[in-house]
């Protein structure tokens, strides 16, 4: 239940997190989830149920591309990479995210 509350705050930023993670290089969905968790020092957990729909949506929007490939353990997996449009999108989203967080923290610190 408690992960749910975290997720709520996260849901708007899922696209941003995924784009940012994929900027590190080509990886499969599971790796994306683990990476986010790892990079956030376990503070953020991506609900798998929303990850794959998000990946799918982003691919259709042309921000990421995907192909079937094999993992180190020889499993078949879908690998995602950032496209050029995705790169631009990432920059845009990072910009707007920074603006928002800056705004929010200004408000929070104002008291």
């Amino acid at each position: 239940m408690s992960s749910k509350t975290r997720n709520d705050a996260l849901s708007g930023s899922l696209t941003l997190l995924v784009l940012k993670t994929l900027a590190l290089g080509e990886m499969h969905g599971y790796a994306v989830a683990s990476r986010i968790q790892q990079m956030s020092s376990d503070l953020l957990r991506v609900e798998e149920g929303s990850l794959y729909p998000a990946l799918h949506r982003m691919e259709q929007d042309g921000w990421i591309a995907s192909r079937w490939g094999l993992t180190e353990s020889n499993r078949k997996a879908r690998f995602y990479t950032l496209t050029k449009t995705g790169q631009q999108q990432l920059e845009q989203e990072m910009e707007s995210w920074r603006r928002i967080t800056l705004g929010v923290s200004l408000v929070l610190d104002a008291v």
């Binding site: 969905g29 989830a33 794959y52 799918h56 259709q60 929007d61 078949k76 997996a77 879908r78």
Partner: peptide, 25 residues
């Protein structure tokens, strides 16, 4: 356009892919 294409032609493909990804995950 992509979505339209998916809807028109690739429903099964999409579903299969989702299944396989889920299995992998």
């Amino acid at each position: 356009l992509n979505r339209l294409k998916t809807t028109l032609f690739a429903q099964d493909e999409v579903r299969r892919r989702a299944e396989e990804e889920a299995e992998f995950h």
